[in-house]
Computed example of a mutant assay.
Amino acid sequence: MISLRARQHWRSGPTLRIPRGADDVENTNRRFLLYGVMPLWFVPAVADWIMHRRSNIEHTSGVRESAIHALMMTEAGLPVVAGLTAKVNPLVLSLMGGAALAHGATALWDVSLATDQREVTPVEQHIHSFLEVLPLTAAAFTTCLHWDQVRKALKGGARTDNWKLLPKERPLSARYLGGIAAGVGLCIVLPYAEEMIRCVRARRVPSVT
């Protein structure tokens, strides 16, 4: 369990606030990233779960595909947690870039498996396009907001602090982080946990021929 002292260390700075009506490039990009890209992720995630359910995933590609979905959520989730809670430095940017590449490769594996074992409709494929591009979009906006850290990463980031997980100097509000956590729980964790449970149960039941 994280100690109170550790939590206070990671919440020690003044909370980041975007001034109302601010229309400069930095605040506009940050507002769109936090209140546009992040919540938008939940919509295709739920829609994709519905498509899996309609195509009877538990009796087709089953546990294997559901496990790939869990892997993809991990690949997307780790850099999101780092970006929302830690200082964006060369380490976090490298994590985002590497995770985006891994997520894309896993998505290709997922579709290759799914199309061989169940019907993947054009609608589901279109939903996948959103799920694939949103991690890249988030990484791109983060890069634009922290170009100084990109330069450090390209130069090798000689300082050791560049390659450590450090708390944000201006952490996001607890209210915002709580809202994102609730959205992840309701729109991603619960639906896909239910999917995995269905797949495991179906595998345990012998098929009737």
Rank of each mutant, 00 (worst) to 15 (best):
L71E: 05
T74A: 15
T74S: 12
E75D: 08
E75K: 01
E75M: 10
A76P: 00
L78R: 08
L78C: 07
L78G: 03
P79K: 05
P79W: 12
V80D: 03
V81D: 00
V81L: 15
V81A: 15
G83I: 08
G83A: 13
L84K: 15
L84A: 13
L84G: 11
T85P: 01
T85Q: 09
T85C: 11
T85E: 07
T85D: 02
T85S: 14
A86Q: 09
A86T: 12
V88Q: 05
N89M: 06
N89R: 10
N89S: 11
N89F: 04
N89T: 09
P90H: 05
P90Q: 02
L91E: 04
V92C: 07
V92F: 06
L93N: 03
L93H: 04
L93D: 04
L93F: 04
L93I: 10
S94H: 06
S94M: 12
L95V: 15
M96G: 09
G97I: 11
G97V: 08
G98H: 08
A99G: 08
A100Q: 03
A102G: 13
A102C: 14
A102N: 10
G104L: 12
G104I: 05
A105T: 08
A105H: 11
A107M: 13
L108C: 06
W109D: 01
W109E: 03
W109Y: 12
D110L: 09
D110K: 02
V111F: 05
V111D: 01
S112T: 07
L113M: 14
L113D: 15
L113C: 11
A114E: 06
A114M: 14
A114I: 10
T115W: 11
T115E: 15
D116A: 15
D116C: 14
Q117F: 03
Q117M: 05
R118C: 04
E119Y: 07
V120I: 14
V120M: 13
P122L: 07
P122H: 08
P122D: 09
V123L: 14
E124P: 03
E124I: 07
Q125Y: 04
Q125K: 15
H126A: 14
I127G: 02
I127Y: 00
I127N: 11
I127E: 01
S129E: 07
E132F: 05
V133G: 01
